[in-house]
Design a protein around this nucleic acid. Structure first.
Length: 591
DNA sequence: GCCGTTTTCGGCCCGACTGTTTTCAGTCG
């Protein structure tokens, strides 16, 4: 019986092991290795369990033979004997404290020891009590300020004042845009840009990091902490500051002089794995990298870079798009001058997954916008075509005969709309998003297919089937000649529901052979297929489509987030079918 | 414990900030 662990849970376990190793005097690089692996797994965009299912744990940066083996035991049995032995050497009360910002292994251990905290369950409460009773300030290495800091931090932690749940990309982008707009209003701000996972367009964002180029950092930092949503200033130095804004989100600002802005941007865009690899590379050229620039280790002089292109060029590399800075081979390709030319939003020629407000008594939610409005907006977006892909009529509430009648009427309705909207030169495909039923049948009678051009098929129920059954279920559905697209394939809802378990290699091989497309769904909570699977699909020669799954005209803007996912998956224009012009796309869809 | 276009052994990124310090340790990103 296998056990399920989320990426966060696995990362937390590895961090506990790292802490235990540190405190028991293990080799510092071994400690670091566990931290790196934890960091790497926490930021994976697919489930670590899926890597395990596929026997590909080794492909995770920072996970080698030893950690792979331990994780294998974890997924098989639910625990790792070696880890339990390590953790058993220390009081269990240390570990819950590690989750509180500002607490590392050393501090936690010292407090636990001095205050004689023994139980894992109440360690945080007991520590808070001790701080309030003034028992901390007298401990060596602590003082009145740290005693208050501990009270504050625990208060924030327990009160949920600081949010640790990651934001989805669109939400984070909007919050960041507000901060950036505010910063740009400062007379001392030369340039303001997002950093970190936000700039790399990761699907979920932890906290928001931004950079400002300025000749007067002190003045910009003063201005920053006065942002009107500021609830708490966490720290403020001469170059950086951190605040918590309403909603509990942390915002970090880094400042630099304009002549050194390129280095700062590069450094804090990360990813950490990308930068570590880059620094190792630089060291071989006797160069040392930091956010300030590139130091020549022979002369001791640091060269400043106002832009990233020059920074990368100094290392003998092409500029690397932020979306693929994950140390997954991009540095090697930049060296060889063979980086992929990533798909762009402007390459997209159509959006073929959207729901209109025509009531076909569907199995799931109806759209709210009319066909005419969707067409008009598509015209403004310079699309050549769209697909109306409503959910299939509910199978539980209708007879097969009724469903076929509904499909016929719907086709006539949409054709009528096209006829009366001749002014807009956007082509329409009449499509349907059809449920894949538990047994792999698709929820539309065969005669219903006469009234659509093609179908997307997707999972909306029984998400917990085992891997083999689920794979068979999907392949059965995709075998229908008109089922051309596998929509939001993993079915994940970010922060709410994990994706299904599928044998992706098998699914992609089938899609490649039968010319089926896999969707990248741009819905903010989906962003599904995830980027790592996008890369795998492309590697297996599968074509993709990027859709918005819009249920209203305003949601058609979400296309850019789907393009972000595609870029993070190394997709080029030729990998994306709806980057094709109308005739070429039609040829594939109707074949 | 991880990793490799100088390496399967021998290295392993770098600096800001804070608090308690008389010069640094711990934490964070």
């Amino acid at each position: 019986m296998t056990k399920s662990f989320t990426n966060k849970e696995v990362a937390d376990i590895l961090r506990e092991v790292s802490a235990a190793l540190l405190l028991t005097g293990a080799n510092q690089f071994r400690v670091l290795a566990y931290d790196r692996a934890a960091e790497s797994i926490e930021h994976l965009t697919s489930e670590v369990k899926d890597y395990w299912d596929d026997g590909k744990l080794n492909q995770i940066p920072g996970v080698g033979a030893s950690i792979s083996q331990h994780l294998d035991e974890l997924f098989k049995t639910g625990k790792v004997r070696h880890f339990e032995m390590l953790l058993g050497k220390l009081p269990p009360s240390i570990f819950p404290l590690l989750s509180i910002p500002g607490f590392g292994p050393k501090k936690a251990y010292k407090l636990v020891k001095e205050l004689k905290l023994t139980k894992r369950e109440n360690a945080v409460d007991e520590l808070e009590k001790a701080a309030k009773e003034g028992k901390i300030a007298s401990i060596e290495g602590f003082g009145a300020k740290s005693e208050k800091e501990i009270t504050d931090r625990i208060g924030d932690f327990k009160g949920g004042k600081i949010q640790f749940v990651r934001m989805n990309l669109p939400y984070a982008s909007k919050l960041a845009d507000k901060i950036l707009a505010y910063l740009r209003m400062s007379p001392d701000c030369v340039r303001a840009e997002p950093l970190g996972s936000l700039r790399r367009k990761a699907s979920t964002i932890g906290d928001i990091d931004v950079a400002v180029a300025t000749d007067k950092p002190a003045s910009v930092l003063d201005y920053f902490v006065k942002f009107k949503g500021t609830e708490r200033i966490i720290e403020k130095g001469t170059e950086t500051a951190s605040i918590v804004v309403a909603g509990g989100r942390q915002i970090d600002l880094m400042c630099s002089l304009p002549e050194g802005f390129g280095s700062l941007l590069q450094h804090f865009t990360g990813s950490k794995e990308h930068n570590i690899r880059l620094r190792e590379l630089a060291l071989k050229q006797k160069l040392s990298l930091s956010e300030h620039g590139i130091k020549n280790m022979d002369t001791g002089k640091t060269k400043l870079y106002s832009n990233e292109e020059a920074f990368y060029k100094s290392l003998g590399l092409l500029w690397i798009p932020p979306e693929i800075r994950e140390n997954r081979g991009e540095i090697e390709l930049a060296k060889q001058n063979t980086l992929p030319k990533l798909i762009q939003l402007s390459d997209i020629k159509g959006d073929i997954h959207m729901h209109c407000n025509y009531n076909l008594e569907p199995s799931h939610d109806l759209g709210v916008s009319s066909v005419k409005d969707l067409l008009a907006r598509a015209g403004e977006l310079k699309y050549e075509y769209i697909g109306i892909s409503d959910h299939n009529p509910s199978v539980t509430n209708h007879t097969q005969k009724q469903i076929v009648a509904i499909m016929k009427k719907r086709k006539e309705y949409i054709e009528q709309q096209i006829y009366s909207t001749k002014s807009v030169r956007v082509q329409i495909f009449i499509m349907l998003e059809i449920d894949i039923l538990t047994d792999g049948k698709i929820a539309l009678p065969e005669e219903g297919f006469d009234y659509i051009d093609a179908a997307l098929v997707s999972l909306h129920s029984s998400f917990d089937q085992d891997r083999a059954s689920m794979t068979k279920r999907v392949l059965t559905a995709l075998a229908h000649p008109k089922a051309k697209i596998f929509a939001h394939p993993t079915g994940r809802l970010l922060g709410k529901r994990e994706g299904v378990e599928l044998d992706w290699e098998k699914i992609f091989a089938f899609c490649k052979e039968h010319k089926k497309a896999v969707e990248i769904n741009s819905w903010p909570e989906r962003l599904d297929l995830p980027d790592t699977l996008v890369r795998q699909a492309i590697g297996q020669g599968v074509k993709l489509v990027i859709d918005t799954d819009s249920h209203a005209v305003g949601q058609m803007e979400n296309m850019r987030y789907g393009v972000d996912v595609a870029r993070r998956g190394w997709a080029q224009k030729g990998d994306i079918l709806n980057a094709l012009p109308y005739n070429a796309f039609k040829k594939w869809l109707l074949k």
